[in-house]
Write a protein that binds this DNA or RNA. Sequence first.
DNA 1: ATAGGGTTAG
Length: 815
Amino acid sequence: MFLLKVGDKLKIPRFKKVIPGLCCNRFQLRDEFESNHWYVAQLESCIQSKSLSQGKIIHQHIIKNNSNIKDFSIILDKLTHLYVKCNEVQLARQVFEKIPNPSVVCWNMMIRAYAWNGPFQQGIDLYYKMLQLGVTPNKFTFPFILKACSALQDIQVGQEIHKHAKQLGLEMDVYVCTALVDMYAKCGDLFQAQTLFNCMSSRDIVAWNAIIAGFSLHTLHNETMELLVQMQQAGIVPNSSTIVAVLPTVGQANALSQGKAIHGYSLRKMFSDSVVVGTGLLDMYAKCHHLSYARKIFDRMKQKNEICWSAMIGGYVACDFMTNALALFDEMVHVYELNPTPVTLASILRACAKLTDLNKGQSLHCYMIKSGMDLDTTVGNSLISMYAKCGMMEDAVGFLEEMTSKDTVSYSGIMSGCVQNGHAEKALLIFRQMQLSGFEPDLATMMALLPACSHLAALQHGACCHGYSVIRGFTSESSICNAIIDMYSKCGKIHISRKVFDRMHKLDVVSWNTMIIGYGIHGQCTEALSLFHEFQVSGLKPDDVTFVAVLSACSHSGLVKEGKYWFNAMNQEFSITPRMAHYICMVDLLARAGNLDEAYIFIQRMPFKPDVRVWSALLAACRTHRNIEMGEEVSKRIQKLGPESTGNFVLLSNIYSSVGRWEDAAQIRTIQQHQGYKKSPGCSWVEVSGVIHGFIGGDQSHPQSATINKKLQELLVQMKRLGYSADSNFVLHDVEEEEKEQILLYHSEKIAIAFGLLNISPSNPILVTKNLRICVDCHSAIKFMTLITNREIIVRDASRFHHFKNGICNCRDFW
DNA sequence: ATAGGGTTAG
């Protein structure tokens, strides 16, 4: 017959426990019929009491005794039933395979086993095998097989099975129809689900719960609540399953008062003692950012399982209460000695990522390996993101390569990590790798690719992502549209950003912020402020980022009065406490406009200790306004705090050279080198036909270098004719004018522009991106270049866009 | 009932 993987030894006397009074030696003498009968009785008893080990012993006995058994079907049928009942699906299947002609009941049983515990595809395969063998499904078959379809989100198979049910006249059976509603709802065809639901002659609570759960699952909050009302109007009283189905969408919609009402209802109906309802309520409060309520529910729960612990931990992580999350995790593991589930681990890894706590993250990685959870895709993806956020890209990539169950999210985690760590170009390479491995790009992929395009100002790649997102239907998501808006804005196409923005179905805070920021960096302060006004009447609330956007827009355009007004208003009218970022904006705003003393006083009056970036903003303005005394003073303060970036050395050095104090300038550079800070080289790049060409200062390595040089020399002659003279303030060495002119001519942005002039069709503007701020000489040179070539040149530097046209820049030389 | 990636600013 077949092999059985059982450890139990055959202990005949134990049979006595099953049917007391039955003697073994008498049993051995039984004839065929009686022995069959006896096995069946024994197995039925095991099924009832769910006794797996007893069943296995009987199973062994059957194998041993098989010469005495003629009709196996009924015995194997019972045995299958027993294994299914004891969740031993594989064993059940092995036995099932031996049944010569399984009855439809037996087929149903086996399909049900797969539909409940997976693998779901096996259930579907089994269904088709059953049809092939000529067995007709009955009304019990459909609910099971349809459940497998929903689990797999396989609407095509679901539709086919729907047809079968129709052919058999079972479509309108309450159970079958409810199962169809459930399947269509879970697979996303809510229209079909509702159509069927409306056709039902009598809708019981299960049918109502199915349609409600479907709408809730697809985060259609209003529709879900509307159905809940209709259900009650139809005289059906919501039960705990209804509540459990509704709660997630309430949380998602932040509908706190509705959530509270449901909480009250659950209390009156005594539902809230159930772990499942309790967890649902807890999660709802956490999603509404009411952690204290969530915690109260958690603390009062009589019986807790891993799921409620995970929900509470996840709530803390989502609301940025990492310390509480970590403390609760420790308590769960060490005090209550519960084993973390993959869900717990994913949440706690996210906490480590947010805290950039590499140590803790690494120890969790060890735990993952020991427990085998490193094989779980979700946990693995969280680990990748943790490593990426901690700047450990090699570890992240290393893990990805070892991963056996990687998916598109794994790749997008790596790609986002590349962008976050300043290697956007690597993200594109990883994307290629992913495609070569046979993964189809999805929404997650686009969410990683678009920011990479934004960083690189890779318009053609970005536009390609946009098109793909439209075709695949991703643009129904606000998050994708926000990423697209940002991409166009960073690629110099602010008007396209606005078009996308105007066509969006549902704007969120990020959409408004992204658009306002876009106008800000393009120097379109009027548009930024008028959009900000629209935002305020839109019904959504501006957040802290909105004010960073508004203040920096004011700063870029020198609107000191407006900036001051909004800085005060954010505190008083919007109850948003200014953070460091807001103070940086204000210092920048005041100092850039020339109010250096006011900026200095403003810093001293800050309610917390200013960081390096605050002082750097002031130092940058000291450079622009050539205030050496303050520059030196500010420099000293920065030195005390630790310069953090080379930019500050460069600024001070430039302040000295701008007034001809070459020795001082040189000395600063020497200190910089002694302290081990290398100046990050200026780098500019330009996209031509989807290929990004990068240049560093003095770069001669490009294949077209000779032509580029020729173009630059040509331009220099023409520029000088129009009155250009090299602004050598920032050339370090005290060298001859002509030599300075040549050094300046090979600044990376000029090389990139020359390359663009040679390779980009005259009807298109040239967009050059630079990693640092644009230099003063380049800024004036480019104005001349637009006059000579009659071309539009756009430069995106580290802080904003410069639109050069007809000899002027829209920043009005104020940056 | 709980979970992965991702959009804005500094």
